[in-house]
Design a protein around this nucleic acid. Structure first.
Length: 207
DNA sequence: CGCATTTGACCTGCGC
DNA sequence: GCGCAGGTCAAATGCG
């Protein structure tokens, strides 16, 4: 999972420290575990928007298997007999894990705030400090029932103005709010996600 | 009152 | 086999 970390690291995020920020989004795109060429930011010269999205679905068969996540504690415990004793969490006993591949999209945004309202409702479920960054990484989850989309937000220590947002999975429900131009970005994301297998008309009704 | 956030503990995977 | 880093959960707390 450090793929994109490196990616970001090498990426000249500090494209231009212009104070403009405000509405300048930096996005890049990558696909697969490194294959592919991400769309170089040849760009239109105007360093305004660059898209950075990493779609890594596959190639991590036995590696991660994060689905089901539950494995932790609680849940399976039919009877919380953990009276005085510590919780007896089933030691990693995942049963039928679905190998559901979940695409990941990562992009950097230049923003003063970590929380970008992309139109969905997110619930923060964790925060952890990462080694290379002095800023902690926040973990969010879509509160919509049945929607397993996760998102992690991290601010670059190099540029506190740059926020890296990584989405994992795709929303199975329509967006709640329609954002100005973010909607456009989401649409882009959907398209990218489809490009893995069937690039058909993926555009749902986002609006 | 309900929901989102906060925070510490704990688990898992990987590297050495 | 141990330690590190990352990721997730869950109880408590605060806010709307």
């Amino acid at each position: 999972m450090e793929n994109y970390h490196m990616l970001f690291g090498t990426t000249p995020t500090a494209a231009q420290p212009s104070s403009s920020t405000s509405n300048s989004y930096n996005f890049l795109a990558t696909a697969g575990g490194g294959t592919s060429s991400l769309m170089r930011d040849h760009d239109r010269g105007q360093p305004g928007h660059s898209f950075l999205a990493e779609l890594s679905n596959s190639s991590k068969d036995g590696g991660a298997s994060p689905p089901a996540a539950a494995g932790g504690r609680g849940e399976s415990s039919a009877g919380p007999a953990a009276a005085g004793g510590e919780v007896d969490r089933p030691s990693g006993k995942r049963k039928g894990e679905k190998k559901e591949r979940r695409p990941r999209y990562a992009f950097q945004t230049r923003s003063q705030v970590d929380i970008l309202d992309d139109g969905y409702r997110w619930r923060k479920y964790g925060q952890k400090a990462v080694k290379n960054n002095k800023f902690p990484r926040s973990y969010y989850r879509c509160t919509h029932q049945g929607c397993n989309v996760k998102k992690q937000v991290q601010r670059l220590s190099r540029d506190e103005g740059v926020v890296v947002t990584t989405y994992e999975g795709t929303h199975t429900h329509p967006i709640e709010k329609s954002n100005d131009n973010f909607e456009h970005i989401l649409t882009q994301m959907q398209i990218y996600s489809g490009m893995g297998s069937n690039f058909s008309s993926n555009h749902n009704m986002f609006h």
